[in-house]
Design a protein around this nucleic acid. Structure first.
Lengths: 120, 120
DNA sequence: CAAACATATGAATAAATGTTCATTTGTTAA
DNA sequence: TTAACAAATGAACATTTATTCATATGTTTG
């Protein structure tokens, strides 16, 4: 048997097992990255506020800007991020573009987050 | 009736209704902030990898560092963030400190994230 | 007590991120 | 076609954040 060059905390077998299990269950690099990327999108209170508005109605950009009391540009930049990550979809109607939730997952994920917070 | 100084997209009543509904359903400022803060914690692939290890076992810091091939310091800094946000708890055993999931919500939230990603 | 080990932490640095401002694109109406 | 409006976008700036390095804290063993 080869010697272990990576001992730690005086544990041997535990370690081998852990490595094996983790290698089996850990998602691929790209999936981990995408997951983090997705949660990053939820990690900004402006975007969360946008989503809470979209929970209630399909709205255009300037309405969002007014309701949230922010500039059109700031909202637009954030909508772009939400759309790139498929949390939101858009539809043109004349000069306006209306945004709505892309997916009911969004509600579920935010609801889970709320649960966690309230449980303190 | 008072005049509206905040017209937009030529919509009037829609707007009033939206404002009313949003004001009723939008969480408080502090809750929005806490929510974003929580998701920010999930928004880093190092922390996600740590969580995936903890899904499988309770482990000490140096084991985490080895399994994830990162420095002890980097892992320790991230564990601190996970702990502050109550995603992880710790227990001392001699010289080592063992970390484990604080809460099954963590699994659920990550699972929802995975669902969303795989659904493309 | 001193030495060795496991973990935590503060300061510094590089990279990522949100907002603003100015401008552009696309649509409608005159 | 020109003017007016809605939305998108690029550059710039300030802030946040992850990692590294050096060091401190806390525990066990000799």
């Amino acid at each position: 048997m080869a010697e272990k060059e990576t001992e730690c905390c005086e544990s041997y077998e535990v370690h081998e097992n852990l490595l094996k299990i983790v290698n089996e269950t850990m998602p691929a690099e790209t999936e981990l990255y995408d997951l983090a990327e997705l949660f990053k999108v939820f990690g900004d209170s402006t975007r969360i506020r946008i989503l809470f508005v979209l929970f209630e109605a399909e709205v255009c950009v300037c309405d969002l800007a007014q309701v949230l009391n922010m500039t059109q540009s700031a909202i637009s930049h954030q909508l772009r991020i939400l759309k790139q990550n498929k949390l939101v979809k858009s539809r043109r109607e004349g000069k306006s573009i209306f945004y709505s939730l892309a997916d009911e997952h969004v509600r579920t994920i935010i609801a889970q987050g709320c649960d966690h917070i309230e449980e303190t």
